[in-house]
Each structure stands twice: as structure tokens, then as C-alpha cells.
């Protein structure tokens, strides 16, 4: 499988998924006009990747400065998908990175964490970026 790479825009994040290291990166902003259009290719890639590589440990590093309510729904779908993988025995880690002053991002991370069961959801405050 090839790397999944989408450049970020003002309102959509950069996505970089490496099937060899099984590290997935999503970073930037997320308030696109149409979430489905932006994220559908990512879901398709992930589905194919999980089929081809059913066991290896997967790490998702996620650092979103701001995301709108539609993106929140999309991210929940993403975490549900990863949670299913974890329920089937795969080790899945989500590192939810947020600026230490970005209270909203911290609270959102806590809520996502409360809504998943089997994957390992880790809140990681960082300080090298300006808050929203």
C-alpha cells in the first residue's frame, strides 16, 4: 500500500498515513464546507489498510487547532472505526495533542476519550504553538 498524503488547507488538516510504520498524522484546522468530501478518501484508505494489515499496532497523532461541529461527528466516526479495530485485538493508540492553553481542545479530547472503549486515548498538552 502507498502512503496516504493530503496537504492541509485553511479549513482542512494535513493527513499523512504511513502504512509501513503504521503511524497516522492529522494536523491543522478542520472546518471544511463539506466534511464528507474531505474525509471520505481517508476512511477508504483506512478500510483498505485494515483489511491488508489486520494486526499491527497503529498510532494516530492528532493535532487540530479548531474543528467545527460537523468535523466532531467525522472524528467520532474515525475513533469508532479505530475502536472496532482495538476491540478485535489490535493495539491502537490515539495521541490527542493540544496546546496547553487551548481549553476547548482539551475538553473535546476528554469527551472523545470518554466515548471510546478499547483503544488507548492519550491527552498530550504541548506548548510550542500559539493557541487558537
Amino acid at each position: 500500500m502507498t502512503v496516504f498524503h493530503v496537504e492541509g488547507t485553511k479549513s482542512s488538516p494535513r493527513m499523512y498515513f504511513d502504512p509501513a510504520s503504521r503511524v497516522l498524522e492529522i494536523s491543522g484546522e478542520s472546518y471544511p464546507e463539506n466534511c464528507q468530501q474531505v474525509y471520505e478518501p481517508m476512511f477508504q484508505w483506512l478500510q483498505e489498510f485494515f483489511n491488508k494489515d489486520p494486526q499491527g499496532r497503529v498510532v494516530l497523532n492528532m493535532e487540530i487547532r479548531y474543528f467545527n461541529s460537523s468535523s466532531s461527528r467525522t472524528f467520532m466516526n474515525l475513533f469508532d472505526l479505530l475502536d472496532e479495530q482495538a476491540a478485535q485485538g489490535r493495539i491502537v493508540e490515539v495521541h490527542w495533542r493540544f496546546h496547553e492553553e487551548n481549553e476547548t481542545a482539551r475538553e473535546c479530547g476528554e469527551e472523545f476519550m470518554a466515548d471510546v472503549r478499547d483503544l488507548c486515548f492519550i491527552l498530550t498538552p504541548i506548548s510550542d504553538q500559539r493557541p487558537a
Binding site: 479548531y66 492553553e101 487551548n102 481549553e103 476547548t104 481542545a105 493557541p131 487558537a132
Partner: peptide, 8 residues
């Protein structure tokens, strides 16, 4: 920071 994020 918190207010700015909420307004935004």
C-alpha cells in the same frame, strides 16, 4: 485564550 477560542 479561552474566550477567543469560543468566539472564534
Amino acid at each position: 485564550a479561552g474566550v477567543a477560542q469560543r468566539v472564534f
